[in-house]
Amino acid sequence: MLTNQVIRRAVEAALEEDAPYGDVTVETTIPADETGTARLVARETGVMSGIGVFAAAFAALNPDITVTAHIKDSDRFEAGQTLAEASGPMRDLLTAERVALNFTQRMCGIATMTAAFVAEVNRIYDAGHDDAGDPDTGTVITPRTFPRTRIVDTRKTTPGLRPFEKYAVTCGGGRNHRYGLSDAVMVKDNHLAALAKEGLDMAGAIRHIRDQVGHTTHIEVEVDRLDQIPAALDGGADTIMLDNFSLDDTARGVQLIDGRAIVEASGNMTLDRVAAVAATGVDVISVGALTHSVRSIDLGLDI
């Protein structure tokens, strides 16, 4: 997903956007032969993601710049910690600074938010055993498919930056939903409405799809009412998404599905309620906010 080729194309495009004709400030203030070292310093706590992208931004501008990382992706860091050092021509260090920081700050923000969601879910299991009671969530139901409920992302990503943002989710301990429209079938209300005009109900629609795709293609169906679940199961859905269900209806949905499909909960998921949703026994919780509402982590480049 986040390959060296993808990184190189993205940072080169960002540098072209930021300095299409060079950096007039450094060219008029910094001697051409001056060299130095810049430290990537955390201004707040967070989870690292994109240390390789940080290095690639400098290398794309000048391959003679040396970057030494003091941290790995997925590691936690504290305010004041030096995360990496870049050494080389001062003009190039300052020209690439903003591009390097823009990628890294956003990726660290996504990783940090994801880690918070994962920790909030995991705390309901860490009291001692998986079905332990919890003062905030009540009885905890163990998911049927996975040992613990998984936090996953969505396709609500910044155009052109999806590989970076989905990678950052994994650095925070989350998992990836489908990468794009080509990866799996996701049947929503508009698709069902179109097929209903052809005389197909939900179960028939799923079978119609199954007949047309390869045996490895995963089929997920979104439902917004409990009474749609039997048809989704009858059609043979691999995953059933419970969209904007109440906690009570989510728990009922898990019971109805009873392990016959992966259960995903989705819709306006927040840190305050994610543990209670996980305690219903859903296998997966998708969180669009991980990429569409994230705050970049404050990092600085100190010369």
Rank of each mutant, 00 (worst) to 15 (best):
P31V: 10
P31Y: 07
T216S: 13
E27S: 14
G236S: 11
A60I: 10
T112V: 08
D227Y: 06
L299Y: 03
D189G: 12
A119Y: 10
D224T: 14
G128L: 01
D283Q: 08
F164W: 02
G180W: 06
T66P: 02
S246A: 09
N244E: 01
L61V: 06
I71D: 10
L299G: 04
T139I: 11
G128N: 00
S296L: 04
S49T: 04
G160S: 08
R273K: 12
I51N: 00
T137W: 09
K188T: 12
P89K: 14
D33L: 09
A278H: 03
L200C: 05
T142M: 05
R98H: 07
R106H: 13
M1P: 14
V282E: 00
G288T: 13
D283G: 11
G204T: 13
T250M: 15
V213I: 15
V6A: 15
L256Q: 01
V221P: 01
L192F: 10
G259L: 05
A193H: 12
V6I: 15
V41I: 15
P163I: 01
N4G: 12
A194F: 08
T158K: 04
R43M: 08
L242E: 04
A55D: 06
I257T: 00
G50C: 02
E34V: 13
A115Y: 00
M186N: 06
Q81L: 08
T3H: 02
T139E: 04
T291F: 13
S49F: 05
K72C: 07
V24S: 11
T217Y: 03
R91K: 15
V99M: 01
R43V: 09
N244Y: 04
V24F: 15
D136G: 11
P31H: 05
D183M: 06
L226H: 06
